[in-house]
Design a protein around this nucleic acid. Structure first.
Lengths: 365, 365
DNA sequence: GCTGGCACTCTCTCTATCCGAGTGCTAATA
DNA sequence: TATTAGCACTCGGATAGAGAGAGTGCCAGC
């Protein structure tokens, strides 16, 4: 596996240049770019060897070289300079995060939007929530036909629902139900909410109007929607500005695939979540999904608190500016982790302000 | 403006055919399609006149005719057969509506998704909420550092927020604040929530910890987000399957424009909302937005209840199947109005079930 | 081991040519 | 007068060939 230092520099220069221009790079160009005091003929010899090693390929005999997926892989692993973001860029990202992070419900798509704008590639955001249980119930009596269910989950999300009834109930019944639900439905996972539990609660509450099952089904719905993997894809249209997707059919295929959203990462999702905060790069055929075989994906994960991991990724041609994208995603993910994760006062449902551990309330906007 | 019956039949046949094939239509083809017992030569004469009238044009001398925007306009206004949806199609739409309509918060984008899938064009969904005021406050005391704000709006939306405090409060304070907010902040619009009102409430509550302003700013935020026009665009990628957007640049321009979302309809939004439940068609240059000048938009509006109007539209090439799209959108809008509108028990925030007036609780899922 | 030189290859672009679809016009017909 | 058949004409699109240019591989010399 030993590969001479000069070969490395040539490969690096070639990949850099190809990323910039999207055109096959010739020996002459490399000789000028990477000034490693030798002529284009020497570089030609090296290029021939790199090609034999499977790191480069030629679109046709008389064209320059382009990197193969293996070439990109080596570039990403060893050659690429870890790009530092400029102060402006970091400030830009922080500013956007502060602007946007007010509401968790729209956060996912907002984060995707930020990533997409930042990198000018389509972005995908997903989150796998840790299994949650109900922490407490409140039922707010509005009038004889109306009440509000408010549930607080173990991850400090709060959900509510307004219920209208075709029949009348009194405040006492509502209170009784709240008590019973707090006693029987808190701290249990949704699969332990059985018809038996529901009907026993119903009897205990003297509920002849089916209120119990209304509330119970809201609980089940809430818990299960909480446990789903939520995925958002943003900025698919940015693909079209990349020369490799000038072919409308090719672009269309990939965009269709992306717009499905959920299964973007195929089987790899789980292991993605497991890994540390490192940025991951999947190059061309390294992707499991057939549709991504000639595209690349860069993924960063972040800690959303409450044992919940978020994933933020970017999709582009294999000729992607890995260095810049990785730096940006990494910074973005770190910013998200900092804001969301690790506090005992994490953000929660609908309209909760973000609180950072130890800080005061952040009153954004 | 009189235009002979035969001309009409020729124009209709031509537009129908062009919609189907996307290729200029010649006299011969029309002679075969619309069997109005006359030869292609006669039709050529008629075509020449229709062209002179500005209803048709020729891409070049020796090609067939294609409709001008004026031609489409006449087609849409007078010639097009009002398409009836098949039973399968109506059932399909109803099924999707029933599946999807569980949560209002995701409804907007879901409706867009349905419209886009149904028509195979990009769809946009927007809603202009009627100005809302707070109807009632509840503060739920969790522990010394935590409470939940629950507000119910005049349009029966319920919003909540979990607040963590860096200081301790007791239940009494929370109750006092709830009372004061119910007394002072209900029934008023957000512009009447002045610093003066806030500070007087603060004094009345003996609040030295800034709780009042936290709650007040949540109120303001809730009201103003409620009054925004929310817009969703879905299925931009479907553009790419249309031959008129095979040019990546053209497609890119329009998709970029669409992805901005909000200002899709430009100045026309207001009047759109005003109109009845009719389906509206904007053909090419009839659109105000420069980016839509050679595309068409079909829009249907529906009643979301609570004086709120929803708009659902579809964007495509001027060569759009107006008849089919209009029929589908119209049916979809009617279904939405039926489900959402006109009840005194309309759907509300986050997780409220949909209730149809007079019906029992619909327990979807 | 490096370099300059050179023949070779292959793609891309430009131009010329041909083909065919569809037109507009004219003259004949009902 | 309205319709039709016939025909010359036009113009875009497809096809083929020539030329240019970029880049290679190889070889001989340093």
């Amino acid at each position: 596996m030993g590969i001479s230092d000069r070969k490395k520099r040539i490969l690096a220069a070639l990949v850099d240049e190809y990323i910039k221009t999207a055109e096959p790079v010739g020996s002459k160009a490399i000789a000028q770019l990477a000034d490693l005091g030798c002529s284009s003929a020497t570089i030609r010899n090296e290029l021939a060897e790199l090609t034999a090693m499977g790191l480069l390929e030629q679109p046709h005999t008389s064209a320059g070289r382009i990197p193969t997926p293996a070439g990109y892989r080596m570039y990403v692993n060893e050659l690429m300079e870890k790009q530092k973001l400029s102060l402006e860029e970091t400030e830009e990202i922080n500013r956007r995060l502060n602007d946007k992070m007010i509401q968790l419900d729209s956060m996912m798509s907002d984060v995707g939007k930020i990533a997409s704008q930042l990198t000018d590639y389509p972005a995908l955001a997903l989150a796998a929530y840790a299994p949650a249980v109900i922490k407490r119930f409140d039922l707010i009596y509005i009038d004889a036909n109306t009440f509000i269910i408010v549930v607080m989950l173990s991850n400090n999300t709060v959900k509510n629902k307004l219920v209208h009834l075709p029949v009348s109930v009194d405040q006492g019944m509502i209170n009784k139900l709240a008590m019973l639900f707090n006693a029987n439905f808190t701290g249990i996972s949704s699969d332990r909410i059985t018809p038996i539990l529901i009907s026993s609660t119903e009897r205990a509450a003297d509920d002849t109007m089916g209120l119990t099952s209304v509330i119970a089904s809201f609980v089940i719905e809430t818990l299960s929607s909480q446990n789903e993997v939520h995925a958002f894809v943003t900025g698919e249209n940015r693909l079209l500005s990349q020369p490799e997707y000038r072919d409308p059919d090719k672009a269309h295929r990939l965009m269709n695939y992306l717009s499905e959203g959920a299964h973007v990462l195929g089987g790899t999702t789980d292991e993605m979540f497991d890994e540390g905060s490192e940025v991951k790069v999947l190059i061309g055929p390294e992707n499991v999904a057939e549709e991504l075989k000639d595209s690349s994906v860069v993924i960063a994960s972040y800690d959303m608190g409450d044992n919940t991991k978020g994933l933020i990724g970017v999709v582009g041609p294999t000729r992607m500016d890995y260095s810049a994208v990785a730096a940006k995603l990494s910074f973005l993910a770190a910013g998200l982790s900092r804001r969301l994760g690790g506090g005992e006062a994490p953000p929660s449902g609908m309209h909760n302000k973000l609180i950072i551990k130890g800080d005061d309330i952040i009153d954004e906007h």
